[in-house]
Lab assay of single mutants.
Amino acid sequence: TVKFKYKGEEKQVDISKIKKVWRVGKMISFTYDEGGGKTGRGAVSEKDAPKELLQ
């Protein structure tokens, strides 16, 4: 599970739902399947990112 803040809201998403991951400076950005055909997005700092996300 990845915990992150998006627009001031605390969120979390299961690693299995993450589609795409990329690095922006010291942040790790990602998109994930929100269900219902929607794609969500989020970002975590490199130090807070789970190891599975960095692979």
Rank of each mutant, 00 (worst) to 15 (best):
T1E: 07
V2T: 02
V2G: 01
K3Y: 14
K3A: 08
K3R: 13
F4P: 01
F4L: 03
K5H: 12
K5E: 08
Y6M: 06
K7T: 02
G8S: 05
G8A: 05
E9K: 14
E9N: 10
E9R: 09
E10K: 08
E10D: 14
E10F: 15
E10T: 11
K11I: 14
K11S: 03
K11H: 09
K11M: 10
Q12W: 09
Q12I: 15
D14S: 13
D14T: 07
D14N: 11
D14R: 07
K17V: 09
K17W: 07
K17R: 12
K17E: 06
K17M: 11
I18E: 00
K19E: 06
K19N: 11
K20D: 09
K20E: 11
K20H: 11
K20Y: 12
V21E: 00
V21C: 05
W22R: 05
R23F: 07
R23S: 05
R23M: 07
V24M: 09
V24D: 12
V24G: 04
V24W: 12
K26T: 15
K26C: 07
K26Y: 14
K26G: 12
M27H: 06
M27C: 10
M27K: 07
M27F: 12
I28C: 02
S29K: 15
S29I: 13
F30Y: 01
F30V: 01
F30N: 00
T31H: 05
Y32P: 00
D33L: 06
D33S: 06
D33P: 02
D33H: 06
E34D: 14
G36D: 15
G36Q: 11
G37W: 03
G37N: 07
K38Y: 08
T39N: 05
T39L: 15
T39D: 07
G40Q: 08
G40T: 05
R41L: 08
R41G: 03
R41I: 11
G42Y: 06
G42P: 00
G42D: 01
G42V: 03
G42E: 01
A43N: 11
A43G: 07
A43M: 15
V44L: 10
V44H: 01
V44P: 00
S45M: 10
S45V: 09
S45D: 15
E46W: 12
E46H: 09
E46T: 11
K47L: 13
A49S: 05
A49F: 11
A49D: 02
A49G: 02
P50L: 04
P50Y: 02
K51G: 09
E52K: 08
E52G: 09
L53K: 01
Q55N: 13
